[in-house]
């Protein structure tokens, strides 16, 4: 029988893997993909609560509404981030986050 805790554990695992990817990968595009994984972990958690927790009908619907906003913001963030990456590639011919340090003092 699937319970809420199953969803929470999968969500926690996905978030941790995404965090590892953000911290450890060199390519800016892979960092971006890892951020998408973390956003999806949050969505899983929200949907799990919306379905399983002892909430009213309205609160359950709100859980799914917030997931729609998460997906919207993820799309907007991805478009901007890819624009920044393309710009960086044009100026620096590199998307390696270790070499992009011109904001350092």
């Amino acid at each position: 029988m699937i319970e809420l805790v199953h969803f929470q554990v999968v969500s926690a695992g996905l978030f941790s893997i995404g965090l590892y990817g953000v911290l450890a990968r060199k390519s800016a595009l892979l960092v971006l993909m890892s951020i998408e994984l973390m956003l999806n972990a949050v969505s899983i958690n929200l949907v799990g609560y919306a379905t399983f927790a002892d909430f009213t009908e309205y609160q359950r619907a709100l859980g799914q509404v917030i997931v729609i906003f998460v997906i919207t913001i993820a799309a907007a963030e991805l478009a901007l981030a890819i624009a920044i990456i393309l710009r960086l590639y044009r100026n620096r011919t590199s998307v390696n986050v270790d070499e992009i340090d011109f904001l350092k003092w």
């Binding site: 926690a12 941790s16 911290l23 450890a24």
Partner: peptide, 22 residues
């Protein structure tokens, strides 16, 4: 592709946050 030099730290951070969340 290679991981950058701080990947052991990233493993620790990932496992740590997973433990806290669990």
């Amino acid at each position: 592709l290679t991981d950058n030099g701080q990947w052991p730290l990233a493993v620790v951070a990932g496992l740590g946050i997973f433990g806290v969340l669990l």
